[in-house]
């Protein structure tokens, strides 16, 4: 376990020293919150900021996972992975470290969103609510970053991964319940949105806002994350031995 944390520490140091990366990672989500959350002419609710914030939080985690997916691929391309694999520490700790780092980075970004949202008037100050939101985002982050890291590891190069990234990012976001409730969507979109895993995380946070504990959704996300992580480990072992 401790080896996993050393890998996380390495990535964290590298990320914090890349000023442009850091700035873009923090400003982008805030821009979404202001330009989408406050500028759209919405009629179905009086407080769109409260409605859109869960969507932006989950979008941010999605973006962080997609961006971070290529990290392990770059470690492989640049020769770091070979060195790590020739070390006695459990090889899976390389994968766990990467997934944990991507998730933690996403959580740092979502914290910025939450701070902005609270400053702009959204009601998220309840510590229990915040803890539960973080739990959902963490599980969702593990689920997504396991998928993206594994996909990137099996693809040939960074261009192919960028194409995959572009192919799934926008459709996943726009066919989710991020921007509007199901009853406001066209019926075909509502069907897609209910199937979209991104909606599960968003709906879970909205349930928490409404005072409902989304036990089933949380369990679904947890099982999903566990299964995907298991598949990731199997593919990682195949790709590295």
């Amino acid at each position: 376990m401790i080896r996993t944390l050393w890998y996380v520490e390495r990535d964290l140091r590298r990320w914090l020293r890349g000023r442009i990366n850091l700035l873009s990672a923090l400003i982008m989500p805030a821009a979404w919150l202001i330009f989408v959350g406050m500028a759209l002419p919405i009629r179905f609710t009086d407080n769109y900021l409260d409605f859109i914030t869960p969507g932006i939080l989950v979008l941010t985690m999605l973006g962080a996972a997609l961006q971070g997916g290529s990290l392990l691929m770059f470690d492989k391309i640049l020769g770091f992975l070979q060195k790590f694999l020739a070390m006695p520490s459990p090889r899976e700790s390389i994968l766990y470290g990467k997934i944990l780092f991507i998730t933690l980075r996403g959580m740092i970004q979502t914290t910025v969103i939450l701070v902005f949202a609270i400053i702009l008037g959204a009601q998220f100050l309840d510590p229990v609510l915040l803890a539960q939101i973080y739990l959902i985002l963490f599980i969702f982050g593990i689920l997504l970053s396991s998928i993206t890291t594994t996909v990137a590891l099996t693809l040939e190069d960074h261009d192919t991964y960028a194409a995959f990234n572009a192919m799934i990012a926008m459709p996943l976001f726009f066919t989710s319940s991020a921007l509007m409730p199901y009853d406001q969507m066209p019926s075909w979109l509502a069907v897609l949105a209910r199937l979209n895993p991104v909606s599960y995380a968003i709906d879970a946070i909205r349930d928490l806002q409404a005072g409902i504990f989304p036990a089933m959704t949380l369990a679904g996300l947890l099982i999903g994350a566990f299964v995907v992580l298991l598949i990731s480990v199997i593919i990682f072992r195949r790709a590295t031995v």
Binding site: R3, W6, Y7, R10, S89
Partner: peptide
């Protein structure tokens, strides 16, 4: 393959930690 955004010492200490 060395991390250009880390110092020389950080690069080596990181390996020392990984070797346990």
């Amino acid at each position: 393959a060395v991390d250009p955004k880390l110092t020389g010492r950080e690069n080596v200490v990181f390996f020392g930690k990984l070797y346990g």
